[in-house]
């Protein structure tokens, strides 16, 4: 394969997926810098092994980001234990997770808060389905779970988020 062709391949993939992958990585790594590191590691590893990857392989890219993020957390934890350093919690607030207009800012913060209160297993499904725009089958492939499990998690997560964001809808019922 021509290297320019491959170059165009990964750049197209990057333009399509980079913000989505970054949002996915930030579910484990709130710091923007850490999340970017995870995306970079995963992206490079993925394209090294799959230089001719097509859109059908993209769910594996999310799986690679997940692995990379978890690796980063483990290595950071080890380093922090070794250095007996105070853990610096980088707040999401300093680098917003969503690109928003002024009108959307309040809603975006509520959505992020609702996401934060979800269990990890549900949160990753919501992010992949809503913002990653993957199908349940693709999410199941990326996370190594059954489609039914993924669909259930999504349903529970969406319900929990709606209760968190729109409590008054439920007060009226």
């Amino acid at each position: 394969m021509d290297s320019n062709h491959t170059d165009a391949h990964w750049r197209t993939c990057y333009e399509q997926l980079a913000p989505k992958l970054l949002l996915f990585a930030r579910q484990w790594l709130p710091s923007m810098a850490d999340a970017e590191d995870a995306v970079q590691n995963a992206f490079v590893r993925f394209w090294r092994h799959q230089p001719q990857a097509g859109a059908e392989h993209y769910p594996l890219l999310y799986a690679a980001v997940r692995t990379s993020a978890l690796d980063l957390i483990r290595s950071r934890d080890r380093r922090e234990k070794r250095e007996a350093d105070d853990r610096v919690d980088v707040s999401r607030a300093d680098t917003p997770v969503f690109d928003t207009t002024i009108d959307q800012r309040e809603h975006a913060e509520a959505v992020q808060a609702a996401l934060d209160q979800l269990p990890q297993a549900q949160r990753e499904v919501v992010v992949l389905k809503v913002w990653g725009e993957l199908t349940f089958a693709q999410i199941a492939q990326a996370l190594g779970e059954s489609i039914n499990t993924i669909a259930s998690r999504y349903r529970y997560a969406l319900e929990a988020m709606r209760r968190h964001i729109k409590p008054h809808d439920y007060e009226r019922v």
Partner: peptide, 13 residues
């Protein structure tokens, strides 16, 4: 509700 969520775009790297 999903439509409302999708209206938010993930931040670019």
């Amino acid at each position: 509700f999903e439509h409302e969520l999708r209206a938010l775009r993930p931040a670019a790297p």
